[in-house]
Nucleic acid binder design. Structure first.
Lengths: 155, 155
DNA sequence: GTTGAAATTGAAAACCGATTTCATTTAGGA
DNA sequence: TCCTAAATGAAATCGGTTTTCAATTTCAAC
């Protein structure tokens, strides 16, 4: 790892090593705060901005990508061989994963049609999980969208 | 439209009408600032928070959804019958759309397998568009991720 | 081992879009 | 017309992200 970074022009430091290691232990959807807490369990002297900067660095060298679920918190996903999508519950904020091999194939093809060089695919399903749906915790009172609505609106 | 809102317990106001109309004229990927500017062209007295609140309302009544491209700015997409994905250029920030009917079918099926009630699908391809790719403006120097890297890192 | 340029760090401040507060005004049913 | 709940506008606030800056550390060159 040290060598890997050096060839990119980055130096290894104790903080960096701890941060990198902690990130890969945490797994998926790691927020800065989460990583900061985990790092702090081991070394209370590490600063927040150092954690943040190293998370960015992890992305820069291609070992993770940013994930944005729309709740205002940026999370970081390890880049793995297996692409996956997210099921995001809009009520309890729970996150599940599902595999998207077939879909990614289609998307790669699509990108090709647009002469677009894809770096990363995001596939998310927002909605309500079994629990929230069953408990009737969710008040889904969206208006029905009809052609009339829109026409009327644009008038 | 007025009636449509009233049945939901909302009132119609001159500001609201202007904001709604402007939103639907703008089309896709509308940010608060963009809409604010457009509304201001017609009525300088409308406040920013009013625009923001009404954009939220448009979502609440199901006529638009929030879109998050990861650049820290929330955009709003009109809900249409035709779902679409986004091709987002990480260099010039340009946004293209592509149709995703087939993919949405697969995703709906997937959601079903998880007993998940989907409300909204997000399908994004991040990467570099033809122009940015060709102009060599982009310095894609990501590290190659190998099994060794990761193993070494977790050590 | 020493040195020096460049990278890194930690604390604090700045940033900036999103959201809330609050006093005032307005819509629309009774 | 009257009344109450909803809506508005300006300003303040919030909270996550990013930058600043002085001090420290890495590591390649000597």
């Amino acid at each position: 790892m040290k060598e890997f970074l050096r060839t990119k022009g980055f130096k290894m430091t104790p903080q960096r090593e701890l941060i990198f290691r902690s990130f890969f232990e945490l797994g998926e959807h790691v927020s800065v705060d989460e990583l900061y807490d985990k790092v702090r369990e081991i070394d209370k002297s590490v600063g927040y901005s150092t954690v943040w900067r190293n998370l960015k660095l992890i992305c820069k060298v291609g070992l993770a990508i940013e994930v944005n679920l729309g709740d205002g918190i940026t999370r970081y996903d390890r880049v793995t061989k297996i692409p996956h999508g997210h099921l995001y519950c809009m009520n309890c904020k729970k996150l599940e994963e599902f595999s998207v091999e077939q879909i990614v194939g289609l998307l790669a093809e699509t990108a090709g049609n647009y002469k677009f060089a894809p770096e990363n695919f995001k596939i998310e399903i927002q909605g309500y999980c079994v629990d929230c749906k069953a408990d009737n915790k969710v008040n889904i009172d969206k208006a029905s969208v009809t052609a009339e609505n829109v026409t009327e609106m644009k008038q």
